[in-house]
Amino acid sequence: MQKPTPQRFLPLDVFRGLTVCFMIIVNTPGWEDSYYILTHAKWNGCTPTDMVFPSFLFAVGNAMSFSMRKFEQMESKAVLAKILRRTVLIFLLGYFMYWLPFVRHTATGWEFIPVAETRILGVLQRIALCYCLASLLIYYLPKKAVWIVSGLLLVGYWIIMYASGDYSLTGNAALAADKFVLGDKHLYHGEGIPFDPEGLLSTLPAIVNVIAGYYTGLYLQKAGSTGTSLTRLLQAGCLLIAAALVWNLAFPINKKLWTSSYVLYTVGIDLLILAILNYVIDHKKQVKWTGFFTVFGKNPLFLYLLSEVLVIFMYFIQVSQISVYRWINVNIFQRLAPGKPGSLLFALVFMLLCWSVGKVLDKKRIYVRV
């Protein structure tokens, strides 16, 4: 933990805060039924929920446009060590989070979960890998070369997916690659089969979300929140969305495969959102409403981890033969508002619980960094 840096970028804090806030809400439904906007697309397509993770990666890139300034005064070895250290720490946090609480319930009691059955990849692991590879590309290559590599990642991923399988859950090349490298037991099993939506091959196009966020941050720092700069962001966002919709005809927009069209689509929407936030906050000076979201934006990693760990233990601890998570919803929230309203109410209350922890940290000016 460390004290905050004197310079903060309010639109970025709000953008991150919106992302983390919505991420907690969609990750903690209280019941089986949820409103459409709070669920992922079953396969192809993109709901508001499918915007959360790519927006977080975009925000990581935005933050890098500020933090990587320090690299100019550092030796290359020190820069490389810093990047690798942060990558390993975030990756391990994600890995151990999925392993928690290290034991599981069985008919005879608790049983230790062996390493051979742990999920290796996941949300934080993808953030770590994308941060690492994007940072190395940006640090070692000129801007033009980084954009060329970004294009190759998107087109190359499309070629691999087209040539080595199809775009179905069971027949895609990303699944085949993950099974070959990691094996079934180390993959996510929430889709009914071993399939990891944060797999190795599908991480390659996700790097572009971070790179786009980085250069967007640099552009705003140089151009400022002027009418011209924000108009260009809006134009770029609309062009990317249009390109994504055209590409969608051949390579469907799909979050679980993290298709190249999905990258363009999500970056386009993020550009529109960030342009609007900059206009409202920096240009129109409307900042009174931002305080709620900056609580999440200033401690995004810690509050995300807190939300996930709390849920893990709420599912693990049992009351009357059911998990605490289920018991709370059955006996409180579903009685107050059955079905979807109760599910949303629980998610909102849980989000506010995490926010209250963040508020205490913010008041004490404590910001958790990795």
Rank of each mutant, 00 (worst) to 15 (best):
E111Q: 15
L348E: 09
D270Y: 03
V311T: 15
N44L: 00
Y36G: 10
T290V: 09
F91E: 01
E117P: 04
G213H: 08
V20T: 06
L89D: 02
T49P: 11
M161I: 03
L348C: 09
Y214R: 07
G224C: 13
V319A: 12
D282K: 12
F53S: 04
E32V: 13
L89R: 06
L306K: 09
Q321W: 03
Q318G: 08
I127P: 01
C46I: 10
R326G: 01
G30S: 05
I25G: 00
F195P: 03
G45P: 09
R8W: 06
W258Y: 03
L10D: 03
L38H: 13
K363Q: 13
V210T: 15
L220A: 10
T47K: 14
S261M: 06
G171M: 10
N329L: 11
M351S: 03
I273P: 05
S150H: 08
V52W: 09
F292Y: 14
G156E: 07
D270H: 08
R85P: 02
S261P: 04
Y367C: 12
P194F: 13
K143R: 11
A250I: 09
A59W: 01
L277F: 13
V208C: 11
W43V: 10
T266H: 04
E75V: 08
V370N: 10
T5R: 15
W147E: 04
K364Y: 08
I366H: 00
V287W: 02
W99Q: 08
P338S: 01
Q221A: 09
F302V: 13
W247Y: 11
K42Q: 15
H105Q: 09
T170F: 08
A223H: 08
K256Q: 11
T170C: 12
S229Q: 04
A174V: 11
Y98A: 11
K179E: 14
S150W: 13
A163G: 07
P11H: 05
L204I: 10
V263A: 01
Y131A: 01
P4D: 07
G297L: 13
H105V: 05
T216K: 00
H40G: 07
A128V: 07
V210N: 12
A337T: 04
K255I: 15
N248R: 02
G217V: 03
V20W: 03
G224N: 11
D50W: 02
Y188F: 15
V208D: 09
S168F: 14
K359C: 06
Y214L: 10
G171P: 12
P205Y: 03
N299A: 05
L141F: 07
S229V: 01
S323K: 07
R232Y: 14
K70I: 14
A242L: 15
K255M: 12
M161N: 14
T226E: 10
D362W: 11
T39S: 15
F102M: 13
P29C: 04
I281Y: 02
G342N: 07
Q73K: 15
Y139E: 09
Q2F: 12
W289I: 06
D184W: 06
K3A: 12
A206N: 12
G339Q: 01
G156A: 12
K363L: 07
T170I: 13
Y98S: 06
Q7P: 00
W158Y: 14
L353Y: 05
P11A: 10
W43A: 06
V181D: 07
L249H: 08
R232H: 14
G122W: 04
C21D: 01
N248V: 05
Y167T: 15
I269D: 00
P54W: 05
Y95T: 05
I90Y: 07
K364T: 00
N44H: 14
